[in-house]
Design a protein around this nucleic acid. Structure first.
Lengths: 167, 167
DNA sequence: TTGGAATGTCAACAAGGCTGACTTAAAATG
DNA sequence: CATTTTAAGTCAGCCTTGTTGACATTCCAA
C-alpha cells in the first residue's frame, strides 16, 4: 500500500494520518468526477444538482412522500419545495394526494421525468461502470463497505431501506 | 455480492444498472457523512466548507501558489479570493511574494491556521479511521482504487501530484 | 372538538459558485 | 526596449441552493 512502515507493521499502516488524508482527498476528487457528467447536462437546462437528486430518489422510490424525500435528501422542506415546484410545473414530476392519508403527497416521475432521469443517470453510470470495471469486483465490494461505514447511522438506515428487497 | 443472478454470472453482476445506482447512492450518503463533522465545527465559526478545503490543501502543499490552489479546488479565482482574503485577514493563512517570480504568492498556514486545520481534519479523520477499521485493509484498498478510477484524468493527475514522494 | 402532523407558501437572508471588466506588477518575448 | 502575457487581486452583479421564521390549510386521531 505504501513504502512507509509504521511501528505496528502492515496491519495498521492504512490508518496513519497521512493515509487518512489521502483518503479524504480521494473522496473530494472522486466526488467531483461523480457529479461532473450530469452537471454538464443540467447546465444546458434550467436545472441544477438539486433537481437531479430529487429525480433520482423519486425514481428509486416511486410514490415516496415529500417528508420521506426530505429525510433522504437532508434539506428543509422549503428548499425541496422550490425544486419540486419547478419539476411539477414542467411536467417531470407528478404529485398525488394520498388515498389513506390525504395530507400526504406521493411523488411519481412522468414519462418526461423518467426520460430526463434516465439521461442523467446514464451519464453518471457510464463513468461508474468504467470505474467499477477498471477496479474489479473485489475493489467494488471494498468501496461499498467503506462508504457504508462512513455514513451516519441514520443515513445508513435510509440507504438500506431504499435497497430493501432489491439489493 | 448479492442474491441476484445476471445472465453473465457473478463476474459482471456488479455492473448492473441497479448495482450502479446503489453505488451512486452510497457515494451520496457517504459524502454527507464525510463532510458532517467538520461542517459542525465550522457552523460555530464564521467559516464554511470552502474555507476548510482551502486550509486542507494549503496544509497538504505548503507554499502552493494561488493558481495551483485554483486548479486543485476547481473554482474561479474570485471565489477562492473571497475565502482566502478572510483567512489572511484573520491570521490563519500567510501570503508570501515569490522569490524567483514576484508575481506569485505562496500560501502557508500560520500556527492558528494549522490549529484550526488540525481540528477540522481530526474530526474528519476520526470518522474515516473508524470506517477504515470497520471495513478492513482490503476494503480500503478497493475503496481507493474505485475512487481513483472515478476521477477525471486531470484531477487524478493532481491527486497523484499532491501525494508525490509521500506514498 | 381540539391538538398536532403534513404540506405548502411567502419573505428574507447567507454561502459559495459563476461571469465580465478592470488594475497592477512582473515576467517573457519579440 | 517595447510589447504581450501571466499572476494576482478587486468590484459588481447574478444564480443556485441551502437556511429561518411566520403563517395557512387540511386532515387524522385522541
Amino acid at each position: 500500500m505504501s513504502e512507509g512502515r509504521s511501528p505496528q507493521g502492515e496491519t495498521l499502516l492504512f490508518l496513519t494520518d497521512e493515509q487518512l488524508r489521502q483518503g479524504a482527498e480521494a473522496m473530494f476528487f472522486a466526488y467531483r468526477g461523480f457529479t461532473a457528467d450530469p452537471d454538464r447536462i443540467l447546465d444546458g437546462l434550467s436545472y441544477g444538482r438539486a433537481h437531479h437528486r430529487a429525480l433520482h430518489f423519486i425514481q428509486t422510490a416511486p410514490g415516496t412522500t415529500v417528508n420521506n424525500l426530505l429525510t433522504i435528501l437532508g434539506v428543509t422542506k422549503q428548499s425541496l419545495n422550490r425544486v419540486l415546484r419547478t419539476l411539477i410545473e414542467d411536467g417531470l414530476v407528478q404529485s398525488q394526494v394520498g388515498r389513506t392519508d390525504k395530507r400526504e403527497r406521493h411523488l411519481y416521475l412522468t414519462e418526461a421525468g423518467e426520460a430526463l432521469e434516465r439521461e442523467l443517470s446514464d451519464a453518471q453510470r457510464t463513468r461508474m461502470r468504467a470505474a467499477f470495471r477498471d477496479a474489479g469486483p473485489e475493489a467494488v465490494a471494498g468501496f461499498r463497505r467503506v462508504l457504508e461505514a462512513m455514513m451516519d447511522p441514520e443515513l445508513r438506515r435510509q440507504y438500506h431501506k431504499l435497497r430493501g428487497g432489491r439489493g
